[in-house]
Design a protein around this nucleic acid. Sequence first.
DNA 1: CTGTTTATCGTCAGGCAGACGACTATGATC
DNA 2: GATCATAGTCGTCTGCCTGACGATAAACAG
Lengths: 253, 253
Amino acid sequence: MPYDPSAFPPFAVTVDLVVLTVRRHALCALAVRRGEPPYQGRWALPGGFVRGDEDLSTAAARELAEETGLHAHDPAGPLLPNAAHLEQLATYGDPKRDPRMRVVSVAHLALAPDLPAPRAGGDARSARWAPVEDLLDQEVGYAREDELAAPLAFDHARILADGVERARSKIEYSSLATAFCPQEFTVGELRRVYEAVWGVALDPRNFHRKVTGTPGFLVPTGGTTTRQGGRPAQLFRAGGATLLNPPMLRPEA
Amino acid sequence: MPYDPSAFPPFAVTVDLVVLTVRRHALCALAVRRGEPPYQGRWALPGGFVRGDEDLSTAAARELAEETGLHAHDPAGPLLPNAAHLEQLATYGDPKRDPRMRVVSVAHLALAPDLPAPRAGGDARSARWAPVEDLLDQEVGYAREDELAAPLAFDHARILADGVERARSKIEYSSLATAFCPQEFTVGELRRVYEAVWGVALDPRNFHRKVTGTPGFLVPTGGTTTRQGGRPAQLFRAGGATLLNPPMLRPEA
DNA sequence: CTGTTTATCGTCAGGCAGACGACTATGATC
DNA sequence: GATCATAGTCGTCTGCCTGACGATAAACAG
């Protein structure tokens, strides 16, 4: 079959972002309020069109910077203070997912440390961090008093759920949980990340043994802190290791 | 920013397939020879344009059927004789990946049992199974005598490498290795799948203990076979379990 | 000074994996 | 038919890792 430009239909390609962070012991996602139809006034994931000369990862990094001020962490580059982990998640292309036209969305997953406040950028009237349970537990037809009564726009609930599941499984066998922490952190803070993402309680003693005993996971910086109260804790930075072998086991229940 | 149809550039969206199987103790991928420019005469992954009313997974299943005669295995449906596992892999959208125009390709990964012969379908002059090492070890500028001298077209070497890595890691913690086997198979045949995909030798006794001791992984059919020579082996079908916990450990070296 | 909180070190038992010996049941070869 | 090669299956042993949990350490609040 020879090449024929009329043989394929045109698509719009967007990137949508699942930006996760841990705030007040809860896994939270960044949501923006839609300022125009369709789904006007509803919450949605941040995102936007891919430009004509842009790679997908570039577009995702640009949207991330526009919405949060974070820049994407280059795996090969140096550790930067305000950097987030960014990776491709999955692509969603149901013909009816956007009522306006045929849109294929390449969703990306970003993991960021706790930030002061989201900044509303681009086409969003407002932006906020919301616990993922609040964003996902929106039953259709279940009216609530607060502003989160409606479920997420488009298929964003599905995308968010996929991103959360990716994060939950990925911290099992990689050192990615450190992406939720500031540059220097304690073992207890890292443990609270796992507890928030998985929604379970972990034994502090076994957790401490596991993470300090895994070579390359944590590097002590020499300092200590008492910002959590109690006995001062050692400060660590993320080590060079990316894969955890053996993995951190997620409890059954 | 109000909706403006001219605010985004049009893209072509394709699906590309990494179809893997195990033949003669080697992990092989399906490659088709390109019949037109660009990369005319070079080997490439099978794929094609997504139609205007088609979901991405539907397009991938259609291409898979066109190229191999296999249909995609419905995870919720019954076990079918000629079904392959199909899942989305990743999306590739470098602005220069196709010299003709802006193309975003949603790559999918398919795992299939050994088939009699590939059938050339659609726009491919010919199709063949090739060991993944042969397809990936094509150094640029390294001229060889045979027809595989040139590396894969477009960014397909990268896509194939990503698909192989996905398959290698996924058989660790899921029961997906059975997707490479016929409906009924022996423990030894399943072990040879792992050995081919990972490129290692596994201890037959420990492997047997592991797979028969994992609940839901294998169900005995009652029959035996001696098609591998030696003592007759029990035949099994894939059980209902999809996740292996604890996982099958891939040897270090 | 006492209680509370968090961090950190130790101990012990059970589960699982790697190494490997032993035995079984076929077909091939002498 | 005896022997051998091949593959499958069952057991044993040892070491590592995890989960459960006791104990100690170092801060702060009253």
